[in-house]
Design a protein around this nucleic acid. Structure first.
Lengths: 167, 167
DNA sequence: TTAAGGTTGTTCTAAATTGAACCGATCCAT
DNA sequence: ATGGATCGGTTCAATTTAGAACAACCTTAA
């Protein structure tokens, strides 16, 4: 009734399914920790922080809404919501786009940059402490390779998604 | 103004910060994909699926609310909410706890087990396709080690959290 | 020019998640 | 025992998110 590959109630070799479970658990816990740290000490959520980071990394410290949505991997409506909040806080600025009247540029303001520069060291030290410091060079290389593979898998899966019954 | 270790607008060596960014992106995309697949084909969310999995893996296919909350890494109130929904769907059953009158046992029902056995192969094949198949044995070992380290880091950080100014 | 089709971003609604407040029940010192 | 702390779970309000519907705009091809 459980199909082949069953190991007394599991559907994956235990050591393998363990990796996946722990992966889920660890990622949840990491995000939770960062979120709490940001809210407690810097008054912004992780999503908002990610927006500030992406903006700071961008060309003229500005991005289009859709770009932003793609980079932080959320729905467009969520970006609208959060950008509005950030704009209310004065950390971000909305400007019309000249070349395309539909578009909006979101730009980091000076207070926004300051807030980011305040928060970043705090968060990065947390990321180091929890995540990066435990990785040696070989492992970093290996992990990078894995992440690229997973990313490519997702891209491939994206493509095949348009034709649902391609298997 | 940006502290030491600044690389033209970044606050971490580029290759290192890249790992973290991609880690965030990949985990989001993975979860998104699994969530969509579950909702489209099996009418449950990822959270609900995780609850069913944990129950199926548990002793007598039952767990206490708090246990459940800890295992799926969410707030207790979210568990109450989701268990109620699952109970309404008939996939799960709530029972009073004999030894502790405050407690509630959540148990997988027969329909619950059936639903899980329907969904699991679908999800596991997706997990394999996107995540596991790209990993060879060495990498799996390495990844397992990393996950355990991260987990331990989080535990340690938990402990030091009670004394906020322990640094 | 214009109509068709795709893109950009917002709005609206429903769902999910969190954290705080809360209530019984339990535990443990005295 | 009994009073105070703690635990297990629910309830409630506030925040966040996704998705669908929508309006405005752009592009292209006839």
């Amino acid at each position: 009734m459980m199909g082949e590959g069953s190991f007394e109630g599991r559907w994956l070799a235990p050591e393998v399914s363990g990796v996946w479970n722990q992966f889920l658990t660890v990622t949840h816990r990491l995000e939770q920790r960062i979120d709490r740290r940001l809210q407690d000490y810097h008054g912004i959520t992780h999503t908002q922080y990610e927006i500030l980071v992406r903006l700071a990394d961008a060309e003229r410290s500005a991005l289009r809404m859709s770009d932003l949505a793609e980079r932080i991997v959320t729905a467009k409506s969520a970006v609208t919501y959060q950008v509005n909040k950030l704009a209310d806080m004065g950390l971000v600025e909305r400007n019309k786009c000249d070349s395309d009247n539909r578009g909006t540029w979101v730009a980091l303001t000076e207070p926004g940059r300051e807030r980011l520069e305040q928060a970043a060291p705090c968060i990065l030290s947390l990321v180091r402490e929890l995540f990066l410091d435990s990785i040696n060079c070989d492992q970093a290389r290996e992990l990078t390779k894995l992440l690229e593979t997973w990313s490519a898998n997702l891209d491939a899966h994206d493509a095949s998604d348009r034709a649902p019954r391609s298997e």
